[in-house]
Design a protein around this nucleic acid. Structure first.
Lengths: 125, 125
DNA sequence: GTTCATAGGTGCATAATGCATCTACAAAGG
DNA sequence: CCTTTGTAGATGCATTATGCACCTATGAAC
């Protein structure tokens, strides 16, 4: 979990959905996706996790893959988004909007929408 | 991980940061936070996870707590955000903006910023 | 005295993660 | 020919996180 001086990372749902999003309009392979995430501003994450997450996404039907040996060099496992993956991605966008609204309301210092909740800011301090 | 028909949930960093955000302007206890999350549109998540996440956040110095026995009923463990928690939350906002921009660029179908990357949409389909 | 809502927690099996390590292909350099 | 470097993917293992079920306890209502 978050350590006192740790910087936040992308993993879990954030990683999965980033990968799905990248695959929305372009097919790609793991190494490529791994690099693209790094370039997008998340430098320190594990490539093993990326590869495993992709396999996991395939197991649950979000993406499909095949070995691409058309180029020279090591074979690449090319991934593409499935219909189920698109549906899941849409659902995620909604969830994310909920999350954003939680975050923004909370940060704006708006009153929680719970009747009988404790009074204002710094109430118990 | 994401199952083909599963709805996305809040956990991991999403849960931690939601909790921290809720505590930004108001102190609260676990049961309350658990309910607030449910009301905010995330109905199906585990309360045990919420309690454990809060203890974890305390262990890493993001929040602090004390037993509140001022009200009638079972004692409540009141949490408040620490300075470290605020700092972490700010860092998270930045990370989230990166993530959002990844998502939006990908969904908009913009070209990935990788030289030599494969051509346009549906290139290999 | 029993039931219900509140409040927090634990045990256990399973899943996810970070880190190190490994295979393999091809180009370049000596 | 042999070694190094970059590309590409994967696994073993220890640690951590999670879901589910279950447990304790307080107090109000019946």
């Amino acid at each position: 979990m978050a350590d006192a001086d740790a910087r936040p990372r992308l993993h879990g749902e954030l990683l999965s959905t980033s990968l799905l999003a990248f695959l929305k309009n372009w097919n790609a392979y793991g190494y490529q996706l791994s690099q693209r995430l790094a370039e997008a501003g998340m430098p320190d994450f594990d490539s093993g996790t990326v590869y495993r997450t992709l396999r996991q996404l395939e197991k649950t039907g979000m993406v499909s893959s095949f070995w691409d040996t058309s180029e020279s060099g090591p074979a690449r496992r090319m991934y593409s988004l499935t219909k189920a993956g698109e549906v899941f991605l849409s659902g995620w966008i909604e969830t994310l909007q909920n999350y954003q609204s939680i975050l923004q309301q909370a940060l704006a210092g708006l009153a929680p929408s719970v009747p009988g909740s404790t009074a204002g800011p710094d109430e118990t301090r």
